[in-house]
Design a protein around this nucleic acid. Structure first.
Lengths: 163, 163
DNA sequence: TTAGATGCAAATGGTTTGCATGCGT
DNA sequence: ACGCATGCAAACCATTTGCATCTAA
């Protein structure tokens, strides 16, 4: 049931078991992430900045804790799994990430926090962004009395087409 | 983090910690469920029929394994938790149930297998049906080459409105 | 200096599995 | 009788937690 580590680049640029840049740990990106964290009210510790570089360094990503942990370990950054979990949740609370619920066995985090939806390829556990303009929910359902809609999520589950 | 057992009746008839009928274990319903299982290619064992009575006996329901297990135990039906899990999956495979992914910590099963979507009340872990006509996805996103859409799920996450 | 962050290992909790026993056909 | 189904307990695995240590400010 173990899936290959896959950092799916988004919006149709799908690739399995992709390599992940370690995030240019010495360059300007390190400084950028540091500032970004400070702006978000998070102390820019070594671990957070390292994870931030991986997450925000190269386009939109969909990661699980395990995937991020492996990517960090593969690079020079040594981070404990517990810290990866903490960091993912802190980033999410700070609005830097967004949680995506598509699989009841693990939690995905999306570095793209703009309005959009997802394809989920079930037999690969891979997520792809659907650009906001490609799917429209209209009408929007009316919530029951006393409740308001926080967010609407659309997930289109995919399977490989049969020949 | 333990939530009260809640069998949410669907479509705005929301209630917390609702009671569950044991399903009229001696009446005609027992026979009906038995036939239904047979038609679905499942051996109508005592446990499967008992769980079927609970699930299909009184309108649409959204259940987790734990909820169904408690309901069965509360009634006269004694079923092991493992069997509940097995049964839920077998029913799902047979098309009698549908899995709903809204919460990464547990799996919900929906007795309504017609086309519709869901509200999810985050702080109560409660699911409500959205009638198919109340939410329309249009346009439907175009899947990447070689893939086809299995199903589109819309989840509107709710929070209690602030005064 | 000190509040907050990290790492480790142990605990948690939903779900699955292995295997001996039971039941539907 | 045969083979699938059940029950139990142990195994699993993603995630969380407790606590001692470390570090950014």
């Amino acid at each position: 049931m173990k899936q290959p580590i896959a950092f799916a680049r988004t919006t149709f640029a799908h690739r399995e078991a992709a390599e992940v840049k370690d995030g240019d740990l010495t360059g300007s990106e390190w400084r950028d992430v540091k500032n970004r964290l400070r702006r978000a009210g998070l102390r820019p510790t070594i671990q957070r900045v390292a994870l931030g570089c991986i997450l925000f360094g190269d386009g939109d990503r969909h990661v699980t804790a395990e995937m991020l942990y492996d990517a960090a370990t593969r690079g020079k950054a040594s981070v404990s799994l517990a810290t990866v979990y903490n960091t993912l949740h802190q980033f999410t609370e700070a609005g830097l990430l967004r949680e995506v619920t598509v699989d009841s066995t693990r939690t995905y985090f999306d570095t793209n926090n703009s309005v959009h939806h997802h394809f989920f390829i079930e037999d690969q556990n891979a997520l792809l962004d659907i650009p906001a303009s490609d799917v429209v929910v209209d009408p929007v359902p009316v919530p029951p009395e006393g409740y308001e809609i926080v967010r609407i999520e659309v997930v289109a589950r995919l399977r490989r087409k049969k020949l």
